[in-house]
Nucleic acid binder design. Structure first.
Lengths: 119, 119
DNA sequence: ATAGTATATTCGAAGTATCTAATATTCGAA
DNA sequence: TTCGAATATTAGATACTTCGAATATACTAT
C-alpha cells in the first residue's frame, strides 16, 4: 500500500527546508544553543535580508520556533528529534563522502580538521 | 567553528534529492524490496519519462544503485542507513502532523489506516 | 516625538526544478 | 536484421528558489 499523498508532500516540504547549505548551517548552530537572528547573521557572514529569508523558510515549515526579547528575536529548534535525524545523516555523510571524489579533492585540506570536529 | 562550505553543499544536495513527494515514495517502496523502473512506474502511476527523471536525480546523488537484467533496470537503496533516517522522520512527522491543521483536515479519513501501517 | 537598532517583507533578476511530449538507446526475440 | 519492450535523454514551457537592494515594522532610549 502506498503512503497517502498528503503525508508524502508534508515530508518533502521538511526535506526541502533542509535543502540549502545556509539552512543546514543555521540548524546546526541552533542545535547547540538558541541564537538571535543577528548572532546567526554574524556567525554565517551573510546579508541581513538573506538570513531573514532563510529563517522564514524554516519557520514556515515549523522546524524553528522563535521568541522576541525586546528588539531581538531568538530562534531555536522546535523538536530535538530533528537534531537526531541530522546526527544520523552525519553518519551517512561520513560513510559516503570519500566516495564523492570531486568533493574530496575540494576538501582535502579541511578533511583532518573536520573529522576532529562535530560535523 | 563553522562547518566547511563544501560539506554543507553536499548535505544540501542529499536533502534536495529527498525533497519531492515522488522521490520519497520511491525510496519507501525500495526500502521493502528491489524494484524495476517499470514496477515503480506502475505502483506510483506516473509517466515513464517522469519516473526515469526522478530515478536519475536519486542516482546522481548516489542514494540509489541499479543493476541491469536484460531489458530491465532494478533499483535499490544504496545504504540502509538512509531508511533509518526516514524511519526517524516518520516519528517526527507523527509528532507534528496533528499540529498541521490544513493537512490534518485533508487526511482525517486516512488517519486511522495510516497509524496502522508503516508510514 | 524622534532617532537608532534589529528584524521582516517586498521586488525583480537570475538560476534551478518539474512536467509532458518527442526522440534516443539498449537488449532480447523472432 | 528488424521489431518491440524497457528505460534514458533532450527540449521547451511553466513554476519555484535564491539573491541583493530597497523599504517596512517594531521596539528602545533619549
Amino acid at each position: 500500500m502506498v503512503m497517502p499523498d498528503a503525508l508524502r508532500r508534508f515530508k518533502a516540504e521538511v526535506f526541502q527546508a533542509l535543502a540549502h547549505p545556509t539552512r543546514i548551517a543555521i540548524i546546526d548552530l541552533l542545535g547547540e544553543k538558541e541564537l538571535s537572528a543577528g548572532e546567526l547573521m554574524e556567525k554565517l557572514g551573510i546579508e541581513q535580508a538573506n538570513i531573514s529569508q532563510h529563517l522564514a523558510v524554516l519557520r514556515s515549515r515549523q522546524l524553528l520556533v522563535n521568541r522576541k526579547v525586546g528588539n531581538q528575536v531568538f530562534y531555536s529548534v522546535r523538536d530535538r528529534l530533528l537534531l537526531e535525524v541530522l546526527a544520523l545523516m552525519r553518519t551517512y555523510f561520513q560513510n559516503h563522502l570519500t566516495g564523492s571524489l570531486a568533493l574530496a579533492r575540494e576538501m582535502s585540506s579541511e578533511n583532518k580538521r573536520m573529522k576532529a570536529t562535530r560535523s
